[in-house]
Structures are given as C-alpha cells and as structure tokens.
Design a protein around this nucleic acid. Structure first.
Lengths: 197, 197, 197, 197
DNA sequence: CATGAATGAGGCTTCATTCAT
DNA sequence: AATGAATGAAGCCTCATTCAT
C-alpha cells in the first residue's frame, strides 16, 4: 500500500503546521498516521526529507492549480485577479501548508536551506512574469515586478493565515473582495493624491 | 552589568533568525554573547522566555517608533504612508526580528502560543485603527479594516524579508515607492476597471 | 535448493570478516547472497545461529582437513610440521574465517559464549595431544603441552592474518619456512645460550 | 575532576573486553563509571573515539613500558627474552586490553580502521627492529624479521588470553618459561632435525 | 518455499537546566 | 554575580525479527 506514504504526509503536515517542524517528533507523526515508527523510515529517509517533500509538493501543486486557472484568461489584470482569488482559497483550504511555508521558507535565512530559496522563488517568479507581461502590454502600471509579486504573495498569505480567527460564513468572499479592491484600485478614495505624490 | 542581558538578547536574535529558535542552543547564544552558559539563566528563566521577550520587545519597539512618527501627521492617508515607510525600513534594518516574527508568530497555530496571538494582534490593531479612522473620515475607501491591516502588514514584511536578495544601493527607496504606489493607487493603469468590477 | 543456505553462509562469512559480526546487518547478508531478507530466516533461526554455524563448521573443517593430512605421518615432529603447514595455508586461504575466529572466539570473555570456548578448545586440544605424544616419545622437549599448543595456534594465525599486507608471490612459502624454523629450532644461532639460560 | 575521564576509560575497557565494543552501550559504560550518560560525551566525542583512545593508549603504554625494560640490556637475544617476559605479563595483567586489541585490531579488515593498522604495526615494528638487529649481529638466525615479529606477538598474546582458564599459582612463570624455551631453542629435542631440513 | 513491508525495542547523541564553586 | 561541569530526558534512526501474500 502506498496509501501509507500519503497518510504519513497528511499527518505530518497537520502536526508540523500546528507545532512547527522542529517540535514535532517522528513518533507523533507515526502515531497519527497509524504506522510504526520504523515504517516512517521506509518511506522517508529522514524527517527533513519529509519536510522538503511537503514544501515542494505543496507549492508545486498550488502553482499548477493556479496556472491551469489562468491559462485561458485574457489579459494580465484578469490573470492577476484570478491569482489572488485562487491563492487565497488554496491557502485558506490548506492553512497547514501555508503556515509551513511561512515558517520554514520565509522564516529562514539558513544557507543550507537553499532549497527553500528555490521553492519560494519558483512560485514568485510566476507571479512576476504575469506582472511583467501586464506592464509591457500597458495594462498594469510600471512598478517593480519583483516587489509587486512579493507584496502580492505576502498580502494574500498573511490574510489567509489570519482567517482562522474569523471562520464566519462568507468570510473568504469578503476577504477576497477586499484584497482585489486593494490591489487593483488602491486604498484611497481620491486617486489623484497618490498619483501626484 | 545589565549590558549582559542586552548582549544575550542581541546574540540570540541573530542566531534565532538565521537558524530558527528550535535549532539554536543556549550554548551558542552564550558563546556569542561572551558569557557563561550558567549566566544565561541569571537573566532568563528559560530559553522560551528569551524568545517571548524578543518578540514582544521587538514589536513593541517598532510600534512605538511608528506611533511617534505618525502622531503629528494629519490625515489617515498620510499616516498610512508613513507606516509603510517606517515598517519597511524597520524590518529591513531588523531583518532578524522580522524573520523571527514570521517564523514564530505567523508560522504557529499552537494554542500555547496565545502569546503570539496577542503580540501579533497588538500591532495589527494599531494599523486597523488608522484604517478605520480613514474610512470614517472619507479619506479611505470602505474596505474591511482588519483585512486591509493584515494585507498591509503582509506585503511590507515579505518585501522586507526578500530584500536581502537584492542589497543593491537605493533598493529600499525603490521598494518603498512601489509599495506606496501599489497600496494607494492600485496596480492597474485604468482605475475604472477595478472600480466597476 | 539447499544451495541457498551455502550462499548465505558464504556471503555472511565475507561480510562478517570485513565488518565484524555486530556491524553486519541481515539485510546486507541477504543482498549479497541474492535472497530475500525473509528467506534468511528460513535457513537460520537467528543471526547469531549463523555465526555459531560458521565458527563451528570452519574450525571443524580445518580440523578434519588437518587430521587427514597427519594421519599417515610417522612421528610427532612430522605431524607438527604438517600442522603448521596446513593451518597456515588454510587460514591464508580462508582469511575471513581466521579473522572471524580471532574476533569472536578469542576476543570474547562473554560467559554466554561458552560455545566459543568449546569451539576453540576442540581444535587446541588436538594440537595438545600431538604435542603430548611427542613428549612422551622423547621426540619433543618437555614443555607444557597446552601452552605450546596455544602458542603454535597463535603464531600461525596471526601470521596468516598479517599476510594480506604482503600478497607477493611465494610469500606463504617463505612465511611457512620461517615458522617451521622458529618452531623447531628456535631463534638463536647458538643453542647453548638458550638451553643454559 | 579529570578522574572521571579515567573512570570512564577503565569501565569501558572492562566491559568492551567482556562483551565486545559493539555490544556495549554508552549507558552501561556510564553506569559502571558512575557518571551520567551525558557526562560521557563531555569527555569523548563518540563511542568510537573512546575505543581509539583505549587502543592507542594501551599499545603505546605497553610499548613504552617494554622499551624502558630493554633499553639497558645488551644483546638482541636478551632483549627478545625481556620482550617475551614483559609482553606476557603486561597482557596477563591487562587481559581486557589484550582481548580488545585482538578483537578490534586483528579481527578487522575494515578499510576505515586504518587506525587499527597503524596501531598494530607501530608495536610490531619495534619487535621487528630488534630481530633485524639480532640477525645483523649474528646473534639470531637469519629468518624473515616481520614474520618472526608477528609470530612472537601472536604466540605471546594468545597464551596470555588463554591463561584465565588456568589461574593457578605460578601459572605465568611456567607459561613464560615454556614460551622462552620454545622461542629460543625450538621444540625438538634434536636440533639437527630442523637445521638440516 | 520465497519475499519484503512492517514493527518497536533499543542505541547514540544532544541539549535545556541545575548547582557547587 | 558568574561559571561550566554534570545530568537525564528525549529525539532520530537502525535493525533483528515477524507475517501476510
């Protein structure tokens, strides 16, 4: 049964996200996955390999999910709008993953985590390319694409993370609308203020 | 000498931020602070207390710093503008702190870390109040204040964290301008698109 | 197929001798013997039983081999001479076995290894008997038979073990001659020196 | 107190020699040395380092002890005689060390144990040099020095190891005399047999 | 017979914390 | 106040052995 590998990953993601990777023991993971401790090591060489697996697979999945969604859309603005929508929902539904990435990818400057760097930038780069295209086409304002991409990622993920505090009905919809408005039209009532500043 | 307490905190912040709290040993902290391992426990009851101290003090300091800056400013938009500017610079100059907060505050759902919740929300609440005031005064658009505050926090801190990748001269200034434009005027060239969406 | 049992024993002997019994895993043995790990346990109840088997069979084989060689010889001196010759060659050609015996039989004082004692002494006793006969017949000098037997065993096996360092051609022949000379005539040029000492 | 380091070494040597290095746990060593398990790692980086330490120190000590004894003696034969005497007594009184060396130095062909090789040969080389000198001076017969040295080492240590079986009074004296006779005059009553072979 | 996935006891090592100096 | 030697709980990982296929 290869279902065991998946059981372990699921269990690990949940515990990692609530206690942090370093505070989670292999024992705990194994228990939650209902396998023996030794079984863990049949499927993963080390605890860290499991983490790596989760991070890469998680971000890759979201990336693919989103790319499918935006492929058919016309215009960079429409694509960005979809990205906000989908990333928010994805992270909302996979809060554990989102928290894990925040902790282990953004919360590290460890040189050994060059993996983290690669994982992180692979997704950011996609955002960046959409922004660049939009600027070239005159659809988006001429702002630094990398900064915009990072900011977009940051606002969406932090909002997704803070949503467990308000699990009220329709909360995601409202959060999404707020983010869309914010990102596309800015926060001020009078645009002139910003433009001429 | 109470300078020792500060030496320990400084050392700890640096190591925590690069290796993570859980991977840092008291030994390492003591060595970097040039004190004995036993001395550590004169100033801090446990390793975790030190973490708590750093988080609270860090966010409190930034909060106070920023509040001083915006106290005299007129108008919520101006205040927000200053917040973006100051938070970005603060986190840029205290990347270690920013990374620590990202890891240990946002990357946790641990119930034991209710502290994290409090710390986090104390700062977010301040942002939120500025936004609420701005909306009431008609200066800002009527968006959900908590979401806006969280998004603002998220975009600024992630951008600050990613800036070590580009330490080129004037990078902060450009990043700040991009964030200001983004936040205040939105990303699209034609405002109508967003407004009427 | 009972060839599998032999394959396992051969594989085990090789690995045991190079890594030691305790550092060898059943997995490694099974792989080298090209059988499944479970198959191992069809032929041997435990890893230790395999060790016991190898030791007993190894020494028994050598004992039988040597007894065949000396049975027809006349005189204890001639028999001893043949023993030196054959044990040296046997251990040289079965260095793995020799190393295993050295490690696991001589290198132990474990009470549980009373087996080791038995195995060891069964071979030594044969030597001892030859020596005793030689003394009684006046062919050999009147020295303590057990000490002589042990010394003979020790010098031959250590020399055999150290020969992998010099795999040059004709090395065994030279080593054998040296041992024979040493054992039969002693090391000094003038016999009187020793006798009268 | 540095007495702890010595306590640990003493305890380890005893247990290693009776159960073998690989079957001995750090826990057992610590208990016997009456220190905490963690304390062990203050004095030794790993369990293997302790083994290395014991082997090197043990052989070095014996080497120095013996060199002191033979330095003032005149003639290679007299020196060899002293070597037999002292090595036998040393190994008899430090059976644990002798067994450890037999197991871990002679019982290995592990390439990683190049240390073992070095340790082993450092002592053997000394023997060899005495033999070479004796041959050059015409005091000893012209036999291969390395083989003679190895054989000498082997016969003495195996006899020392087997002496626990006969702890009767005066046993060492008798064993020593037997070895001396054997080594210096050979085993046969009639020398001619060997000489003319 | 043959296999290898599964298991858990147990080993090595680390580290937060204590305490005698 | 300052130190670092001492400790044992706890974690990661290995491996002999079992058992369902």
């Amino acid at each position: 049964m290869d279902a065991k590998r998946e059981r372990i990953k699921k269990a690990a993601l949940e515990i990692f996200s609530s206690q942090g990777y370093a505070n989670t023991t292999v024992q705990q993971i194994a228990e939650r996955a209902r396998v023996g401790k030794g079984t863990f090591y049949i499927y993963f060489a080390t605890k860290e390999e499991l983490l790596t697996d989760l991070l890469i697979e998680g971000l890759t999945n979201m990336g693919q999910h989103i790319e499918r969604k935006i492929r058919t859309l016309q215009g960079s603005a429409a694509k960005l709008r979809a990205i906000v929508r989908e990333q928010l929902r994805y992270f909302y539904e996979h809060q554990s993953l989102c928290r894990l990435i925040t902790r282990e990818v953004w919360g590290h400057s460890d040189q050994s985590s060059s993996l983290a760097q690669r994982v992180r930038s692979s997704y950011i780069r996609m955002l960046q390319e959409v922004v660049e295209k939009g600027i070239k086409d005159g659809e988006l304002r001429s702002l630094d694409p990398q900064t915009v991409a990072t900011a977009l990622y940051g606002m969406v993920s932090m909002v997704a993370l803070s949503m467990k505090d308000l699990p009220s009905d329709g909360a995601i919809e409202r959060a999404e609308m707020t983010l869309q408005e914010l990102l596309f039209s800015g926060i001020t009532t009078s645009r002139m203020v910003a433009v001429e500043a």
